[in-house]
């Protein structure tokens, strides 16, 4: 059995901080969404920077960071959205291994880019495995830290892992920039016939703004209405992560990792797997455009993305 240590005490929880890993797979038939880190690229990188496996559990921090008091010496890494992290009030760098000591205070400041910050700790966050995953599923109240977001006073634990002297950094050319305007690639959806030609053109030629409804379930976007035809209501079917659904108001909703597994809104398109991760860094008022690619090109990108994830480790550079 791996030993478990007390990692930190939550002084302030931030607005929405949860334990996540790379998701809970194989249970959608029971109505259980996959959950998992919204931005898997930043999440995996954080883990690799502290010598963890890609899928070890870490913290996902949203827009406003927590304040944590360390209860032991260890190594951490912070990736994803730039939330101006500090240790004992001194700014520290993201995308590299950080040595931290017992009683250090880790806190966050102003959001400079992106939406979600990842905090990995050497050994990984210690929470029980529920259905093959440590990810929090808020609506089912299970997984992660007691099935909920972190609160003031929580004591977070980690698996004890022998300390390493080695410190790593992600080369700056490989650090993603989270511009507030982006184009995501999509494959056209299975219910295209529910939309008029005009509706489809509107969708692909318009820019949509992220609204304040942007949680782990999905992004409600605002912009030109997508026209639907006269087909009657569709029968609910399975909804994958990345599906762009169009409810009766004609404004698209992009389904994310905690979404319900079935639904009855027609899907005009499905965002590709790599672009779903990038969408995880979209915040309210960012603008999104959709660009169609063929299935074969989408699958090429998916395979390249998998390769890129497995390359990260080799690309990390030892800090002097």
């Amino acid at each position: 059995m791996t030993k478990i240590m007390k990692l930190c005490k939550v002084v302030k929880p931030g607005i929405f901080t949860t334990v996540q890993d790379l998701g809970r797979h194989g249970y959608q038939r029971y109505g259980v969404p996959t959950s998992g880190a919204m931005d898997s690229f930043a999440f995996v990188t954080a883990n690799l920077l502290v010598g963890n496996e890609p899928a070890d559990a870490g913290l996902e921090i949203t827009l406003v960071g927590p304040e944590l008091t360390l209860l032991d010496d260890t190594q951490i890494a912070i990736t994803g959205a730039n939330l101006s992290p500090t240790i004992n009030g001194c700014p520290v760098a993201q995308w590299q291994t950080l040595q931290v000591c017992k009683t250090d205070v880790l806190s966050f400041g102003r959001l400079k880019s992106g939406c979600r910050t990842y905090l990995a700790v050497r050994g990984g966050i210690a929470v029980p495995i529920v259905m093959n995953s440590r990810s929090t599923y808020i609506y089912g109240k299970f997984g992660g830290f007691q099935g909920r977001q972190l609160r003031t006073g929580d004591i977070i634990k980690a698996y004890d892992s022998p300390t390493s002297k080695s410190r790593l950094i992600m080369p700056s050319r490989l650090i993603p920039q989270y511009a507030s305007e982006l184009t995501v690639e999509v494959v056209s959806g299975p219910q295209l016939t529910y939309f008029t030609q005009l509706g489809i053109e509107t969708f692909f030629s318009s820019s949509y703004a992220a609204t304040p409804e942007f949680d782990r379930i999905g992004y409600r976007l605002d912009g030109p209405e997508i026209e639907k035809g006269n087909l009657s209501a569709m029968i609910s079917d399975a909804v994958p992560v990345g599906a762009v659904q169009v409810p009766s108001n004609g404004k698209p909703i992009v389904v994310m990792r905690d979404a319900q597994t079935t639904g009855g809104y027609p899907k005009i398109a499905i965002v590709t797997t790599p672009c779903v991760s990038r969408l995880g860094q979209v915040k309210p008022n960012d603008r999104v455009k959709f660009s169609e690619i063929s299935l074969s090109n989408a699958q090429k990108r998916l395979i390249e993305y998998g390769a890129a994830l497995s390359q990260i480790k080799r690309n990390l550079v030892e800090l002097a």
Binding site: H25, R29, S236, D237, P240, L302
Partner: peptide
């Protein structure tokens, strides 16, 4: 095949395109 999701009138099949093409 990674996972199947049966619904009213359709079955959604998740697969790994590295191992099997569409």
């Amino acid at each position: 095949i990674l996972e199947c999701v049966p619904t009213y009138c359709s079955l959604l099949i998740y697969y790994d395109p590295l191992r099997i093409s569409f």
